[in-house]
C-alpha cells in the first residue's frame, strides 16, 4: 500500500457529515498574516512625516543596514521560538564568529578560510546547544545562558579583549558594497528571510518544528524525530548568527569581541512583537519581518530625534513589555474562544 491510498471502509461510513469545507474567514486571515506589517506601514508613514531626515537616501541605507543584522539572526530565532525554545547565545555567537573570522584571515591571509572558521564557530555552538537541549534534555534557558557566556569568553580570549583589525581589504566588500543601490547585507538578509520562510512553510522540517512547539509529546508519539529536529534547529540558528557576525565584521572592518551585547533580547523582542508565540507552535516569517522592521524603525527615529541612549533603553524595554503582554493577551483571547 502506498502512502496516498485509503483504508477501505464500510459504505455507510462515507455518509456525508456536516463537514462542508469552508475557507477561513477572509479578514481574520489577512490580519493574521499582514496585521503587523500594516502597523509597520503606518509607523513608517508617520516617521516620514514627523521625523526630519527620516525619508532620505542616507537614512534609508542606515536603517536597512541596522535591520539587516537583526533580520538575519531573527530567522534562526524564529525556528527556536516556533519549536517552543529560545536561544540566548546568538549575540555572543555573532561576536565570536566575527572575531574568529578576523583572526583567521589575519593569520592565513585567506578570506575563505576566515569565513569558514567563523561559520565553524556558529556550527559548533549551535550543535552543542541542540545536543544538550534535545538529547540530554537540559532546559534551553540554562543551556544557552551557559553557551552565551562561553562564546563571549572565547571571543575575548582569541582577540585578547581588543578589536582585531582585518588586513585583507577585499573582505570589506561583503559588508560595504551595494548592488542596485541597495547594500549587500540587506540583500543577504532578504535571501535569508526567503530561505527560512520557505523552510518553515514548505518543508517537512518546518512543519515538524511547528508540531514540536505545539505539543512536543504528541509530535514524538506521531513519529516526529524530536531530537534530530531540535538539533538541526539550534545548529541552523548558530550558523545564521555566525554568518551575521561575519558580515558585521566586514562592515566594521574588524572583529570586535564586545559587539552586540544584549542583542539576543532585541531579536527575541522583534520576533514576539511581530506575533511569534513564546509558547511555541505558532510563527511565520512575515511576523519576523514585521517585528524587525518596527523595532528598527523606532530605534532609527529615536536616533534622528536625538533621544538620549538612556531613554532609548527605557523605550526598548517598554516595547518588549508591550510585545509580551500582547502575546499573552492574544493567547487568552484564543483560550476564551474555546
Amino acid at each position: 500500500m502506498n502512502s496516498t491510498s485509503t483504508t477501505p471502509l464500510p459504505a455507510d461510513f462515507a455518509a456525508s457529515g456536516n463537514s462542508t469545507p469552508r475557507r477561513k474567514f477572509g479578514a481574520a486571515k489577512i490580519w493574521d498574516n499582514y496585521g503587523m506589517l500594516m502597523v509597520f506601514a503606518a509607523l513608517f508613514v508617520a516617521c516620514s512625516v514627523f521625523v526630519p531626515n527620516f525619508l532620505t537616501m542616507i537614512n534609508m541605507r542606515g536603517l536597512g543596514l541596522a535591520v539587516s543584522l537583526a533580520g538575519m539572526v531573527a530567522c534562526g530565532m524564529l525556528f527556536c521560538l516556533a519549536s517552543g525554545d529560545f536561544d540566548l547565545s546568538v549575540a555572543s555567537v555573532v561576536a565570536c564568529a566575527g572575531v574568529m573570522a578576523a583572526v583567521v584571515i589575519n593569520r592565513t591571509d585567506s578570506i575563505a578560510l576566515g569565513i569558514f572558521a567563523g561559520l565553524g564557530v556558529g556550527l559548533f555552538f549551535g550543535f552543542v546547544n541542540g545536543f544538550v537541549i534535545a538529547k540530554l534534555q537540559i532546559n534551553a534557558l540554562i543551556t544557552t545562558l551557559a553557551s552565551m557566556q562561553i562564546a563571549r569568553g572565547v571571543a575575548y580570549l582569541i582577540s585578547d579583549g581588543k578589536a582585531v583589525g582585518i588586513s585583507q581589504e577585499d573582505f570589506f566588500l561583503l559588508g560595504n558594497s551595494a548592488w542596485l543601490n541597495i547594500p549587500v547585507p540587506v540583500w543577504i538578509t532578504l535571501i535569508c528571510l526567503c530561505v527560512f520562510g520557505f523552510l518553515l512553510n514548505r518543508t517537512l522540517f518546518g512543519r515538524n518544528t511547528l508540531a514540536i512547539g505545539g505539543n512536543e509529546e504528541a509530535a514524538r508519539l506521531a513519529g516526529v524525530n524530536v531530537v534530530r529536529t531540535k538539533i538541526v534547529i539550534f545548529t541552523l540558528t548558530g550558523l545564521v548568527a555566525a554568518f551575521a557576525g561575519i558580515v558585521l565584521a566586514s562592515r566594521m572592518t574588524s572583529g570586535q569581541p564586545m559587539t552586540s551585547i544584549g542583542f539576543e533580547l532585541t531579536v527575541i523582542s522583534a520576533c514576539v512583537l511581530g506575533g511569534v508565540s513564546l509558547k511555541g507552535g505558532v510563527g511565520k516569517i512575515s511576523y519576523v519581518i514585521a517585528g524587525v522592521l518596527i523595532l528598527g524603525t523606532v530605534e532609527n527615529a529615536m536616533n534622528l530625534l536625538n533621544i538620549s541612549p538612556f531613554t532609548q533603553y527605557v523605550v526598548r524595554g517598554l516595547i518588549l513589555l508591550a510585545a509580551v503582554i500582547l502575546d499573552r493577551y492574544k493567547q487568552q483571547a484564543q483560550l476564551r474562544q474555546r
Binding site: A14, A15, S16, S19, T20, K24
Partner: peptide, 12 residues
C-alpha cells in the same frame, strides 16, 4: 474527515 465523519466546519 469525510470517511470518519468528523464534525468540523472545515479541515482548516
Amino acid at each position: 474527515v469525510r470517511e470518519l465523519n468528523v464534525k468540523t466546519p472545515s479541515d482548516e
